[in-house]
Nucleic acid binder design. Structure first.
Lengths: 244, 244
DNA sequence: CGGGCCCTTGAAGGCCCTCAACGGAGGTGG
DNA sequence: CCACCTCCGTTGAGGGCCTTCAAGGGCCCG
């Protein structure tokens, strides 16, 4: 019941077609992980599939020299582990206090044999993961710092959609964002500062921003900013077309 | 029978677990596509799944401004289209003369309902795609030009493994490599020149290189080249540990 | 209050991109 | 057969974007 208490999480599950798995996890006990702890390790035997009930999780891969790539961030209602063969290909770490339940992979596979509907959900989930990975490859290969940050902010905005439609929640630290977008924390920070100066964002509470100009944010996320004059004092430029 | 005639293709299929699909495609007619032509378009209704019999195919996604990302390259024995929902998320273009067969997606789905073994093969294929996409994100986010090119060359080498173990075939043009690795053609060219100067590669026939020093190539692919002195005259440095 | 973590801001430098020119290979037509 | 064109690959010069290095401030907690 706990999972269904969050209407936005429910919407996301319906959209992603993972609602079919939810009843299976309802029978499992709920565990908690403290901020900064690891829920599963890269390279471990992949015995379980996880479902996040509350909190935020980062999905990490490491290079041999210690550098890190964050594949993505998970929130309430998200599943992780369906794409593993024998070993976890990445680690899952709690960003804040996380509640989750786990399910034995063998049990899940038996269910998959019995329920055709579940198989379709699984396919849908995997295809979403592939699609998301390809979108992210596009970001990493061709987008500049501002486009990366704006794309990321839009994704976070859509994820939180339903509150007031213009609040972005960033529970992760700058290092996480940097390792997700293939940048340094300094460049992330500078880019956010620039977006505030441009009048697109407004700093709100800790780990939150307000979106002042959503269309400008969307434009900055996808288009080439060649025509930008790059002046800090041009912050009022977008004020006339304020969103909403 | 044509597909089984290539022993390397067969090995790859066994490793990737896609051999189960091959018999289904044997019943289909074989089509050909000339170099440069498009086999399926991004955005089109995804009615078919394709299987490459001969030749090379590039998988492309485009940004709004015309820039291009090449997700990957396919060769004999490879399948494409299993990860689509309703529309092709990317285009498939023939690099050289390509033979392929196609299969109606509806037919495939009926087979999937009947044959549990096929379902496992499908899952395996999708997990491989996710894994490859994540590896590529790592490349795009954290590797420099030399590491990118070396990683790509190693992949090509493994793909052609069995010939003589040290010949790399690059049927695609520089623009394709650049759009795959998130670089410009100039940087790709310069990096290849540098690898030749370092004594790691040797230019061979058109669209081919010989690997002189495979361990150096592997090291350059994954490690941070901070300790490199970057001198062209240091080309003999690796000669003492020549591979094979 | 001190220390650690997080974030921001500044200055300098490097890596890669952009722009440009050139040479070779392959195809076509005079 | 060769001139001509196009495509492809290479090489050079210059500049821009982002990284690296460094310093400082805010916040939290022991």
């Amino acid at each position: 019941m706990q999972a269904a208490s969050n209407i936005h999480s429910l919407e996301r599950q319906l959209a992603h077609g993972t609602i079919g798995f939810a009843p299976l996890f309802m029978r499992q006990t709920i565990e908690t992980a403290q901020s900064g702890t690891t829920i599963f390790f890269e390279g471990d035997a992949a015995c379980h599939v996880f479902r996040i009930v509350r909190g935020n999780v980062r999905i990490c891969r490491f290079l041999s020299d210690g550098r890190r790539l964050i594949i993505g961030f998970l929130g309430a209602g998200d599943l992780v582990g369906l794409s593993f063969r024998n070993r976890y290909m990445f680690a899952g770490e709690a960003i804040d206090e996380v509640s989750f339940s786990r399910m034995n992979k063998r049990t899940l596979e038996e269910e998959l044999q019995l329920v055709p509907e579940l198989r379709l959900q699984l396919l849908s989930q995997l295809r979403d993961e592939i699609s998301a990975a390809q979108d992210h490859m596009l970001l990493l290969s061709h987008k500049n710092a501002e486009q990366r940050v704006c794309t990321f902010l839009l994704h976070r905005l859509e994820r939180n959609e339903g509150r007031d439609g213009r609040t972005i929640s960033l529970p992760m630290v700058r290092t996480d964002i940097a390792d997700h977008l293939g940048m340094t924390i300094e460049t992330v920070s500078r880019t956010l500062t620039k977006l505030v100066a441009k009048g697109i964002l407004l700093p709100a509470e800790k780990h939150q921003f307000k979106v002042v100009n959503r269309s400008a944010l969307a434009r900055a996320a996808d288009e080439d900013p060649d025509d930008d004059s790059e002046d800090a004092d041009s912050g009022a430029r977008y004020a006339g077309t304020r969103y909403q």
